[in-house]
Amino acid sequence: MDPESVARASRVPHGGTTDPDLLDFSANTNPERPPGVEAVYQDAFEQSTRYPDDDYRDFREAASAYVGCDSSSVIPTAGGLEALRLAFELTLAPGDTALVPEPSFGEYEREIELQGATPVAVSHDELLDSDPTGHAVAVVCTPNNPTGEVAPRDELVAFAARCQESGTVLVADEAFLDFTSVPSIAGEPGTIVARSLTKMFGLPGIRAGFAVASGELRDSLAVARRAWSLSTPAAAVGAHCMRETEFVATTRERVESERERMAERLSARFDVSPSDAPFLLCDVGDEAVESLVEQARERGVAIRDATTFPTLDSHVRVAVKRPDENDRLLGALDV
Rank of each mutant, 00 (worst) to 15 (best):
V182Q: 02
F210T: 09
A138W: 00
G285D: 04
L99T: 02
K321G: 06
L266R: 07
S267Y: 14
Q42S: 14
G68A: 10
A186G: 12
V212A: 07
G36R: 03
V122L: 08
F270S: 03
A319C: 05
V122I: 15
T18G: 15
P146R: 00
S231G: 11
D324G: 03
E46C: 06
S214H: 12
L114N: 10
L127H: 07
R252L: 02
A213W: 07
G300A: 06
V140H: 09
A62Y: 04
G215T: 10
E149H: 13
L312H: 02
V74L: 13
C282G: 08
P20D: 10
R269M: 09
S275V: 08
D324F: 10
L128V: 08
A65D: 06
L330H: 06
R254W: 04
T118E: 13
Q295M: 11
V212P: 08
L127W: 05
R218Q: 14
E258P: 03
E102H: 11
M262T: 11
T250E: 13
T245V: 12
E256M: 12
L84Q: 09
A222I: 12
V212W: 08
L281Y: 02
Q42P: 00
A263V: 15
A93N: 11
D305Y: 00
R328G: 01
R252P: 03
I303M: 07
L81N: 14
D96Q: 13
E32A: 12
